[in-house]
Amino acid sequence: MKIFGKNEKSSKEIARDRLKVVLIHDRANVSPEIMDQLRDDIIRVISNYMEINKQDMEISLANDDDSVALVANIPVSKMKHDRGRY
């Protein structure tokens, strides 16, 4: 409930935001397979454009207070030639 323009989040909104973040982590945790698949998919797509160092690549979920980001650090070892788009 907002009274006189007070803009504080209700406790239900706080609960909802916290749950959304924690469930992203829970779901990623219980399924490392999904993270592995995601990693393989990313490698496949990026390899169309550049050579990457697969050993040193890192992907992870990072949280802020109320959001989650997929963070990827992918060392590029060689760029492929631009063959044009068409």
């Binding site: 409930m1 209700s10 406790s11 239900k12 909104e13 609960a15 909802r16």
Partner: peptide
């Protein structure tokens, strides 16, 4: 719920 203090 009405007060915004419980998930619906």
């Amino acid at each position: 719920v009405e007060k915004g203090d419980m998930l619906d």
